[in-house]
């Protein structure tokens, strides 16, 4: 297959662009100075400070619970909805509603949910952030999966139905495997967006159970310190390790191709 050479330019530009600030923050996390601008020498002291920071630890756990919970919910609901909209509905209205959360500014959704929880007199907790993140996560999953469904070959599904398979058998045996790359991409998006989401979380989280972005936001009130760079570096290292491990162990590769 031909791959035009010229395309490699933007390809590598993308990665250089995405990773330049990452390199900066990793380097700065080993800074012995506390200035974010000048590198004074190598030091691990910020990692030591980080290790003793209980707020960060709790925030991290809360964030993981929220991200995993909302990704699972959003992926399940979003995939079903995408298939439902493509195969069981002709309603333009429903199509529109399903993309709405992606169209809404986070602040509007956040305040809307704050008012909603207040109106039904719900006590906020981690669950309220999970539910909130599921709203936008689901829109992204639905949209990405529908991209995959669009123009896709429906003859197999029709054949399956004609042979008397229930919609569910057809779904699990035929549709789902075809959609796998879209579902994985959508879930990856939902997880990525949840793990670093600040605005909606700050309105829907219980004040005493903040997620990590909320904790970090309060730490950078006086500017970024190398401790926060150390935290960002650790997060990267851990997610990188997890991804590599997952790839080795579960043949993630196959589901993506």
């Amino acid at each position: 297959m031909r791959r035009p050479r010229l395309m490699y330019v933007p390809f590598w530009m993308t990665y250089v662009f995405l990773y330049t600030p990452i390199v900066v923050l990793v380097v700065m996390s080993f800074n012995s100075d506390d200035s974010p601008y000048t590198f004074g020498g190598f030091s691990l002291k910020w990692y030591g400070e980080l290790a003793s920071d209980a707020n960060v630890r709790e925030g991290l756990i809360n964030t993981l619970i929220v991200a995993v919970g909302s990704t699972v919910l959003a992926t399940a609901l979003g995939t079903l909805l995408a298939v439902g909209l493509a195969r069981h509905s002709r309603s333009r209205l429903l199509d529109a509603i399903s993309v709405m959360p992606a169209v809404l500014p986070d602040l509007v959704l956040g305040i809307g949910l704050l008012v909603f929880y207040a109106t039904i007199k719900a006590t906020l907790g981690l669950y309220s952030v999970v539910l909130a993140h599921t709203v936008f996560g689901m829109a992204f999953v639905t949209a990405v999966v529908r991209t995959r469904l669009a123009n896709s070959d429906t003859s197999l599904e029709e054949a399956s139905r004609d042979l008397g398979a229930t919609p569910f058998t057809t779904f699990f045996r035929i549709t789902l495997p075809q959609l796998a790359p879209g579902i994985v991409a959508g879930a990856l998006l939902a997880f990525t967006l949840s793990i670093d989401e600040f605005v909606i979380a700050s309105f829907t989280a219980a004040p005493l159970e903040p997620t990590l972005p909320i904790v970090i936001y309060s730490m950078v009130r006086f500017g970024v310190t190398p401790e926060i760079n150390a935290l960002a570096t650790l997060l990267l290292a851990v997610s990188f390790t997890v991804v590599i491990a997952a790839q080795r162990m579960t043949r993630l590769t196959e589901s993506l191709s």
Binding site: L114, V115, A118, T119, P210, S218
Partner: peptide, 24 residues
């Protein structure tokens, strides 16, 4: 004593005036 943090007056005002019992 339980301590929660807010970054700005604006955020805590939004929470206190939205009508839910914040527990504070």
């Amino acid at each position: 004593l339980k301590v929660a943090l807010h970054d700005t007056n604006e955020i805590i005002m939004a929470k206190l005036t939205a009508g839910s019992d914040t527990g504070f």
